[in-house]
Amino acid sequence: MDNGATMHLAVSLADPSLETGLEFSRLAGFVQKAEAAGLDMVLLADAAPASESEAANKRMPFEATTLLAALATVTSRIGLVAAASTSAHQPYNLARRFASLDVISHGRSGWNATMTQAPREAANFSRPEGFSPNDFRRRSEEYIGIVQGLWQGWDADALLFDQSGGRFHDPEKMHLLEHKGEFFSVRGPLNVARSPQDTPVLVLSGLQESDFDIATSTADVILLDGGLVEGATERYDDIRRRVTACGRDPDAVKVLTNVALIADSKPAAVAERLEKEFRARGCDGFNILMPEQLSALDDFVGLVLPELRRRGLVRESYRGKTLRSHLGLAGGGDR
């Protein structure tokens, strides 16, 4: 179990900072290194290009959900979270993709949804005008509700596999969604079994102030930009208050702060900085944004991580098998 003092650590594999010509085997090596170090999860970015020239210069030859599936087969413990845009997928398809990824990874998957509309993306998905900020927010809220509802369409004990009795599943334990909303109409259920970790982990990022009510009522992990900031403690307290106001356990949402690693700073100084914000109750952990070279992970796991462990901030190894169990979230029990 999470003792409340464990600092959660994720590492982000974001495209613009990556080297050219990346092959799968190198990315696999990176994630395996993060797994050997016991990190909670790797976040796979999937940002839409901001311009035509950026599209042409993209270096990562993989879309994030397909990459996640492949990485799941060459790792066994680390959480794998892929970004996927609400503009690029229908909610049924996205819910189904992640439900399947969670079965493939044995309960180690998560969906990173952003509340920020990528300006060019909609234009590649037959919506040249995009959405107004208000519409995008309402649509995102409806979308997330559908996805989480679909993830709960099958009870954990719905599958019977009763060969002689001819009962494959219990029809009473399969539930239609019957969603009819402003933007979507989705009957359900998914045609994928219930997640081994109950539902895939929902990571929300790109939040504006006006998105916090949606985030605190739906997210498992809230990812905040801006690094180490003044007022982090107040912001963290405010999030926990809002989570409680939604009728949720305040520990049901983990707040991670994005931190850019600076290659030449001293490991002890980095650890010091992270410890300070963590001890001040500014967050539950950090998402480390990788600098230019993948090999920078070596410095983090070889030099900074031992410092954090020496200070008793980070657990020594994985205690469970699912991403929820790494994050200390309910529903992470290993079946």
Binding site: T65, T66, L67, L68, A69, A70, A72, T73, R96, R97, A99, S100, L101, V103, I104, W154, L159, G166, R167, F168, H169, D170, P171, M174, N191, V192, A193
Partner: peptide, 18 residues
Amino acid sequence: ASQTSRSIGFEPISLLSA
């Protein structure tokens, strides 16, 4: 449907990527 095995399975893009 409950008498067949076809109501649950992998989504194929994720399956083939694996």
